[in-house]
């Protein structure tokens, strides 16, 4: 995520604030987010059972810590990772979405980043849409692309770009439903898509190198390798 330095603080709001999208639509998406997260909790428990809290907590802390590492992109402009696709590839879609959602809640309550009434919107976009898109793409691409570091890296890159851009399109839909100012939706969609494609590419490069690094050292820890390739591996073993 790109953000510009403001001098006083090196963190800038990147999540939807209060008053951008009207009350009823915010409320609807709060329900969407709650239902989505409940589903994620249920599925995540199947993955991790009582290990869920400690592992997901550490991964959430990891995403948070990674977000705090700014890297200089251009003078005055620094970028940092959102971590959605990375989380999906490393810990799976359900734990990943829960981690991103937890990070968003903490940022909203403790760092005033993202409005309290916009929490449902932010969770829907970044945790649910981001993770769902990444999950579908990663699962599909890993079956198609060659089973080597390049294939794994390409998967991470493509899933990151698509996940970030589609999450930003979530905002466009929400704005079209309940934006507080009349604006051309086409212009917003184009701006959001443009900016987020750049963010997604930066994010994708980092996610790709990160996942490949982890896969080289501890392939057993990469959820995407354990779960999405099983049918292929099983077939190979049978053959």
């Amino acid at each position: 995520m790109l953000s510009s330095y403001a001098g006083a603080m090196d963190t800038q709001a990147m999540h939807i604030a209060n008053g951008i999208v009207d009350g009823p639509v915010s409320a609807i998406f709060l329900i969407v987010a709650a239902v989505g997260l409940a589903f994620c909790v249920w599925r995540a428990k199947l993955d991790l059972d009582d290990r869920l809290a400690p592992m997901a907590g550490l991964v959430a802390a990891f995403i948070f810590a990674v977000q705090m590492l700014n890297f200089q992109v251009l003078p005055g402009v620094s970028g940092h990772l959102l971590g959605g696709t990375l989380a999906v590839m490393l810990v799976g879609p359900y734990v990943g979405a829960l981690c991103v959602a937890t990070v968003l809640i903490v940022q909203c309550l403790l760092f005033a980043d993202g409005g309290l009434t916009a929490l449902g919107l932010n969770i829907t976009n970044m945790a649910l849409i981001g993770a769902a898109v990444a999950y579908v793409l990663v699962a599909a691409l890993l079956r198609v692309l060659p089973r080597n570091p390049a294939g794994l890296g390409a998967t991470a890159l493509i899933a990151s770009v698509a996940g970030v851009v589609l999450a930003s399109m979530g905002f466009v839909v929400e704005y079209a439903l309940g934006g507080t100012t009349e604006l051309s939706i086409g212009a917003i969609a184009a701006t959001m898509a443009g900016v987020h494609t750049l963010i997604g590419i930066g994010e994708g490069l980092i996610a790709a190198v990160t996942v490949v690094t982890v896969a080289r050292v501890r392939p057993d820890l990469v959820y995407a390798l354990r779960h999405f390739r099983r049918p292929v591996l099983a077939k190979a073993v049978i053959a």
């Binding site: 997901a56 959430a60 810590a65 829960l98 937890t102």
Partner: peptide, 14 residues
């Protein structure tokens, strides 16, 4: 409590 527990660990290890 799943959320608050994840949060507890996250904050503790941040």
């Amino acid at each position: 409590d799943v959320i608050t527990q994840i949060m507890t660990f996250m904050v503790r290890y941040l």
